[in-house]
Nucleic acid binder design. Structure first.
Lengths: 213, 213, 213, 213
DNA sequence: CATGAATGAGTTTTCATTCAT
DNA sequence: CATGAATGAAAACTCATTCAT
């Protein structure tokens, strides 16, 4: 986990305003929150892992919770949101012969990035049920995405159109969320990473067929 | 949440060996673990909500963690496992005209029960990433189920059979997990309960079509 | 200071509901607050002096401030207020030949009690400027006293009556407060306790003459 | 409190050796010590209010306590002592017809100055019980004053001379201390500032009569 | 002279757990 | 079986102070 690439994005805007120690604190916190959960991680542990004094943490964030909210906000804005939205407009503009090709483009490009971001997304998923703030932030960010346009594009398959775009979206989100949550959070032991690529392909075909309701 | 029906199942085997106070402790713990998470719930809170003295908790379980493991074990054995397995053999024995009917029978019958058990299942989902014990228990229980038989039955549709039964199972579990996790844990605000029944029907149709890979 | 008699009054209503350890906490806190001030006293110090664990303190009072307010409230209600009011109605009912006799009765009887209560009153005086709660409590208690009646009695001397009863009261309170604050809080070194009795007598004569405005 | 005039006196000797920032630190410290007390004021707060970095404070004074002692020393030497002594020799030299005139001159001239200095004197009064250094300093300064001469002058009224000059002094100090401490520290709410002038006049008359023991 | 990041000892407070009653 | 006072270790957080820049 030492060098997962999303981390640098987290500091994007603040790269210069933050010292190395401050970044080390965030890195340590992300790693520990991801591994043990927010509530089960002590500030002392974070400080030790970051190689700083405990007081240093509280210079940056008034409370432990503030730190967690800063982190989750950045994860959503700098890792999760870009992951979903990057190239979405190009994707939508492009003229696809069929839906499977579209889905494939959308999905496959993101697979490696998603895997890389798993430690970050675990934090979001873990804290979402307890932090309305995070839920609000997520909804806000999602509203900015042209998700209905995507759904519209997807409904232009052989579908008999009895199903609304919102419904398509819900189904898609449910399935994709399930695909990753099950594999990376709930039952990682049951899903070897080697098979991920192949599983994803099958899953895509399934999705494509499914949308022919 | 006052009287969700699964709770009585939890005490099934121990109904007589447990006093009312002991049951109250478990009930309070379940409610609080579900609402705030295990690590963020204090034994003092549990005692207060249960209306017992702090010491009473430790008469039944030597540690807080023991209590949690007892609870999660019971949830898996008395609520989650029965939920999935009940009537499964009858279902398998029955001769279905088509797959959709089978799926519908399987799914619809369980919808109300699932909703009822949400507070219990939340605890499992929340603690799974941090407790290998729970993961192990889950895998063990699942092995007892004729899931592959179900998958086999499902593959006898119009499917072109290019897809293995294990793959069908994985897809099904992913989608169903996603359907409920998204709705009951991650983004409850976005999915009004009134629409649950209708959403489930659409989702079923989608699953059925999807399996025609 | 080991056994100043006011302390038992502090526990009056709660004597049975409080354990020995709880009382020891209060005693230690009173002594330390009086000696070092509230803000400069740590809960660890209090616990050590009381011979209890630090956690014990917080079983009784949610915060250190709560403990201080409980203490100050009791001091006002069980030590300061009774000190002033005790026997006041009898004093007022009695027929005095002259004012000096009245003042003398009022003052002299209280001298020993005041001295005894100094450690308690120091806490009040020290915290009053920073705690509006205490000021409010004090005003409330003082309103219950027949102070204007006392002032009236005092104005029935040879006074030419150009001065209102409220003014008499203010003067009296100012002087008496000054007498004790200077001696017991500001400059104890300058006022040997041996001379207190004699000083008080002179002071009384001065007051008596002064009221002949 | 923004511009109370005594403050400039505090810097008198050091006006040139101190930078604006250093003066701002002292001003902020005085205001905060006066409002919240020394022990309850953090150096961070002082730095923020002064608009300087935290480190700046420790360039001038090695420790927080040193700063407080510097401040209290200056208050005593540059505000409290001059307040009492200014014009005292002239006052003593002057030939007064009666004592009331003398008292009035002494008292009235100082009323505005005292009011102005209240925030400064509060610090002294608050810290006196806990800082023997301050008590020593105060006694030292007071010894320089011709207070006994004042007392002698005051005893040359209609007094029957049964009372010593020291006793007169003690009485006077007690009463004056009480007058101000009650009004400006203990119970400011009960004494509207509008009435201060009139109250002082009555109080003076009372003092004058009182000294006719 | 001034800064502010960093420190680490100390403070208040929480918490799971024990045990005498 | 149940209580709740008591514990002490650990948690979150504060603070005066240092030091490299």
């Amino acid at each position: 986990m030492k060098n997962y690439s999303w981390l640098k994005n987290i500091f994007e805007n603040d790269a210069e305003s933050m010292t190395d120690k401050q970044k080390a604190v965030i890195k340590a916190a992300v790693e520990l929150f991801s591994k043990k959960g927010y509530a089960a991680t002590s500030t002392k542990e974070i400080a030790m892992r970051a190689g700083v004094a405990e007081g240093t943490i509280f210079k940056q964030y008034p409370t432990k919770k503030d730190m967690m909210l800063w982190i989750t906000e950045r994860i959503i804005q700098k890792a999760l949101f870009p992951l979903i939205s990057s190239g979405l407009s190009e994707l939508l503009a492009k003229n696809y012969n069929n839906r499977e090709e579209f889905l494939s483009d959308f999905f496959q490009n993101r697979l490696a990035l998603i895997q890389d971001g798993v430690p970050l997304f675990r934090i979001i998923i873990q804290e979402i049920p307890f932090q309305p703030d995070i839920r609000r932030m997520l909804v806000e960010q999602f509203k900015k995405l042209p998700l209905l346009a995507v759904a519209k594009k997807l409904s232009h398959g052989k579908s008999s159109k009895k199903i609304s775009e919102t419904e398509i979206l819900n189904i898609l989100l449910s399935c994709i969320a399930g695909f990753f949550v099950l594999r990376f959070m709930i039952m990682p032991e049951l899903f070897p990473k080697k098979r991920l690529q192949k599983d994803a392909e099958t899953f895509l075909k399934f999705l494509n067929h499914g949308l022919n309701i």
